[in-house]
Write a protein that binds this DNA or RNA. Structure first.
Lengths: 350, 350
DNA sequence: CTGTTAGCGCATTCAA
DNA sequence: TTGAATGCGCTAACAG
């Protein structure tokens, strides 16, 4: 007792790192016994176990996970590579992910790729170096996917679907279709899309549905945004460019925006030009972030909870079952959240 | 060469973990020599080094950081505990932090405390278990600070100042004062504050400056918000409650909000009641997040870059220099960013 | 310049 | 039920 008290004091002063060996000495047992107690091995004498626990409590011992990882070849860590944090949707995703991981005894090692494939690969290398048990990738594109699939570390791609890897994505085509059909159902006849790339699945779904329903969609109804603008909140500039170009010839009455921030920026730009949202033009955003909630913008809602849970479960499954059959592709269904734009209130109150 | 080719193939198939020992065999050197090459030890024969690097390249070897950490008692990781992600300000902070850390060869281990001191302590325990070299804490309150200060792991508190620990905070009192003086300078005579707790330093600075300038500030000019409302985007409810209570007796013409989201929610609530911002009431937010930028709300800007850099440098300093004198407290100066509310545009265009 | 040896802290045999 | 011995993959001290 006295000796343990003593060490305890020393601990608080100099705080040299303490190990199982010290605990063992103080509890008058061997180091493996301490290990057994900590890992809940029942084959330990009750008295001894109590002594060990008491000492652990007193000195505040915490096992060294680096040693555990080395020994067990298992770190209880999963690496998560994300592309950006400017979109609150990803932040929410990560938040949920950490919660789920924590509940299951895992830590998250989070790295941002900033949409840069080189950094993404760097992240993966780092994950490997740090012995993660699995990886969750929000991909920058196709660039590293195949390499990752060859890595033998269980990995799953989240938010998008990929051929070579397990993936949990959203049915973007369906989302686009849903918006188009909503617009059509509301009686609209001329449409527009704002986004960075025409290859976007949601644009494809949107455009297809429009054409399938016998309506027209030509190139200048695609309002193009630079990637770099989007990342730096400068999409406003691109929108202005477009509006300046078309002048008064705005011939669409509804717009689908690739994300909520873009939607809001469009609404602002339009409003300043005397175009009333939603009276003149209605707008639907994407991601259903709190921005959409706060500003009352209709938006495509991604089932974050379900996506995170599905992704994590899939990863756990891969961790436990060695067998690696074909990559699984899961496509989640989005929903359309309709809102009355608060902006409308601002616009019409006078 | 042939043997290395062979192992390479096996690697791609079964992908058993490869170690320095294997590299050594393939390169016909001893394992420590491989280590020397990897760590840039110049005392290695050039030929041998080349062979080693070639093999490493071929098999894609990445050193096991768990082993390195165990051996060096250094993980090149810093633990970061944050309180929330709902506020984009913290997200920006973390983003910058990861960038700075990466540049210096460090990884971030990020854990969210969700404003819960118990989780915060859990985070710290986890950081210790994972052998972080240092910690950066965005505190949930006072609760764990003293315990942390006794831990011997270099730690610095960020965004707030604390007595017992190195800390890099913001001069909140100054911020409040600055806003009050701005309001006064603009000719306002009756003021309000929206936030969760009257103990808030920025409220203190705000109120003090008002009183010092001979104006009045009584209790019902503090618009109270529940912590839980703020965390769940339900501050609107509290604001409505307040506005309902006072009815038409709104006697203030300017409001200082504890963060940008609150500011926006107030503006919305007020606008819907026919109160024009900024004609009837002007509003200043806090954090200068993109929300404020997008919506054109005036806001107190925190020097994120400087804060992150200062915090990181301080931590590095503590890591390198064993000596631990008194805790250092650094207070950064905020600035007031003035904007013309876009909401105003929406409100007045008709 | 390089190989041999030792040991970081832990979990896991294997005996006893 | 327990302790002694071993080794996870790596770095560092020491010979040579």
């Amino acid at each position: 007792m006295i000796s343990s008290e003593c060490v305890f004091r020393i601990e608080r002063e100099t705080m040299m790192k303490i190990t199982m060996k010290e605990i063992a000495e103080l509890a008058k047992v061997s180091q493996p016994t301490v290990s057994r107690v900590i890992n809940g091995n029942k084959t330990v004498n009750e008295e001894a176990a109590k002594r060990v626990l008491k000492v652990i409590e007193e000195v505040g011992f915490i096992p060294n996970k680096a040693a555990q990882t080395l020994k067990r070849s298992r770190s209880n860590t999963i690496g998560v590579s994300i592309t950006e944090t400017y979109n609150p949707y990803f932040v929410e995703l990560i938040d949920h992910l950490e919660g789920v991981a924590r509940k299951n005894g895992f830590s998250i090692l989070l790295h941002n790729s900033n949409r840069n494939p080189i950094l993404e690969w760097e992240n993966v290398q780092n994950f490997i170096a740090r012995q993660v048990d699995g990886m969750i990738i929000i991909p920058t594109g196709e660039y590293n996917i195949e390499r990752i699939s060859k890595l033998s570390i269980p990995s799953v791609v989240m938010t998008q679907n990929r051929k070579h890897l397990d993936s949990v994505g959203l049915d973007h085509v369906f989302a686009g279709k849903m918006v188009a059909e909503k617009f059509i159902h509301l009686g609209h006849k001329s449409f527009a899309f704002i986004g960075t790339k025409p290859s976007d699945d949601k644009f494809y779904g949107f455009k297809s549905a429009i054409i399938e329903n016998g309506f027209h969609f030509d190139e200048n109804q695609f309002i193009p945004l630079e990637e770099s603008s989007v990342n730096n909140f400068l999409m406003r500039r691109d929108i202005e460019n477009y509006l300046n170009k078309v002048g008064n010839n705005i011939d669409f009455t509804c717009v689908f925006a690739a994300n909520d921030i873009i939607a809001l920026e469009f609404i602002k730009a339009a409003s300043e030009r005397g175009i009333n949202v939603p009276d003149d033009i209605i707008v639907v955003g994407f991601d259903d972030t709190y921005l959409a909630k706060i500003m009352g913008i209709s938006s495509i809602h991604q089932p974050i909870d379900e996506m995170v849970k599905t992704t994590f479960d899939l990863l756990m499954d891969r961790l436990e079952n060695e067998v690696h059959p074909e990559p699984i592709q899961i496509k989640l269904k989005p929903t359309l959240i309709e809102r009355n734009s608060y902006l409308n209130v601002f616009l019409t109150q006078k």
